[in-house]
Design a protein around this nucleic acid. Structure first.
Lengths: 207, 207
DNA sequence: ACCTGAACACCGTTCAAGT
DNA sequence: ACCTGAACACCGTTCAAGT
C-alpha cells in the first residue's frame, strides 16, 4: 500500500466510496448478505479500517439508502402540474427500485424520521410547494402516496428477484395459479393505475 | 426433564409452540433480535432440539408470519358490500399490526409467493368472490390495496415503536417540524382516508 | 497519525455422540 | 428413538498494538 502526501494509506477510501462498495455488494449478493467484512475485502482493506469512516453497520445501511435516494428526479419542468409532479416522483422511485431490486428492501425498512429519508422528505415537500400544492396537505399526501409506492415496489422487486431464480414446482394447482398471475399484475401498468387512483383521489379530497 | 408416555422429553414442544415462543421474543425484543438460541433458551431446551421441529431460521420466521396472518378477520356478515369488506380487511390488518408493531416488518418482508402469505391471498380471494367481486379483478385490487396497507402500516408501526423510546433532539428545526408532524399523520384517520380513496377509486375503475 | 490483527460475544447450522 | 453439546464458519464491534 503506497502512501499519499498526507500519509493516508488509502486515499480512495472515504464515507462515499465505502457506501458505493457496500451498494455494489448488495446489488450483487442481496441485502441480507451485506457485511462490513465483505465490503472491506472488496475494497482491499482490513475490516477495522472501515470504522475510521463509518461508525457502525447501521450507519453504512443509512449511507446506502442516501445513495439510492439522491438518484430520484425532483426537477421541475415548466408548467408541471401538481398531479404530474406526483406521478413523476412515483415513476422516478420505481425506476430506482428496478435499478436496485436487491437493495430496495433497505429503503422500505429505513427509518422515516432520520437523515436519509427525512432529508428526502424535505426535498419532496419543497418540490410539492414549488408546484403550488398547499403545504398543510403535504404530510397527508406524502404518507398515502408513499405508502402505496413503497408497498407496491416491495412486492415488485421481490417478484423481479424471483424471476431470476427458481420457479414454483411444489405448490398445488389453485395456489400456483394465483402466484403465477402476480408477476403480470406487478407491472408498470398496475403501478400507473394505482398512482392514478391515488393522485386523483387526493386531488378531489384535499386540494 | 420428565418423559411422557411416548418417550418425548418435551411434550409441550411442537412447531406451533415454538412459533409462539418466537413471536413472543419478537414482540418483546424486536425482529432483529430474534435468534434460535434465544427461542430455545426461552423454552428451556437445547438450541439443536428446535431443529427437530423447524428446519431453519427462515422457516421459523414464516411460521411467525403464519401466526400473525391467522389473526385476521375474514368473516362475512350478511349484506356486507365489497367496499365494506375491503375496509374490514384493511382495519383487521391494521389492528394486527398495532398488536405486534415489532413483528410487522416480518409480514411486510415475507415472500408473497410462498405458503404463509400465498395461503392468506387465497383466503382473501375467496372472501372477495363471496362478496360478489369479479374474480378477474382480484389480483389488481389486492395488489393496489395491499401495497397501500403494507406501506402505511410499516410507517405507522415504526412510529409506534419510536414513541416508546427517545425523542429527536439533535436535528435542526425545519426537519424536526416535518418529523414531528408525522406521528399525527400516521393515524387511524389517515389510514381510513387512504382506504376510502383507494377503495372508491378501484370501484369506479374496475367494478 | 493512521491503520489493523486478535479477541469477544454473538449468530445459524452440521455432525457425531449422548441418553 | 429422541435429544443435544461441541465445533465450524460466519457476524459486528472493542481494544490494544502495529507502522
Amino acid at each position: 500500500m503506497s502512501k499519499d502526501p498526507r500519509g493516508n494509506r488509502h486515499a480512495h477510501l472515504n464515507r462515499d466510496s465505502i457506501a458505493r462498495a457496500a451498494l455494489a455488494v448488495v446489488d450483487r449478493d442481496g441485502s441480507e448478505a451485506l457485511s462490513l467484512r465483505k465490503v472491506a475485502a472488496e475494497l482491499g482493506v482490513g475490516t477495522m479500517t472501515l470504522y475510521h469512516y463509518v461508525p457502525s453497520r447501521e450507519a453504512l445501511v443509512a449511507d446506502i439508502v442516501a445513495l439510492l435516494v439522491v438518484e430520484m428526479d425532483l426537477t421541475i419542468s415548466s408548467g408541471l402540474s401538481w398531479r404530474d409532479g406526483a406521478k413523476q416522483v412515483g415513476r422516478s422511485l420505481r425506476a430506482m427500485a428496478l435499478r436496485h431490486p436487491r437493495a430496495f428492501a433497505l429503503v422500505a425498512a429505513a427509518a422515516s424520521d432520520k437523515p436519509p429519508l427525512l432529508d428526502f422528505a424535505r426535498r419532496l415537500r419543497d418540490f410539492y410547494v414549488a408546484l403550488g400544492a398547499p403545504i398543510e396537505a403535504f404530510v397527508e399526501v406524502w404518507s398515502v402516496l408513499d405508502a402505496f409506492e413503497t408497498g407496491f415496489l416491495l412486492l415488485e422487486t421481490q417478484a423481479v428477484m424471483r424471476r431470476s431464480t427458481a420457479p414454483h414446482d411444489e405448490l398445488d394447482q389453485g395456489t400456483s395459479e394465483l402466484a403465477d398471475r402476480m408477476p403480470a399484475t406487478l407491472s408498470e401498468a398496475a403501478y400507473e393505475e394505482g398512482l392514478e387512483i391515488i393522485v386523483g383521489g387526493l386531488e378531489r379530497r384535499l386540494l
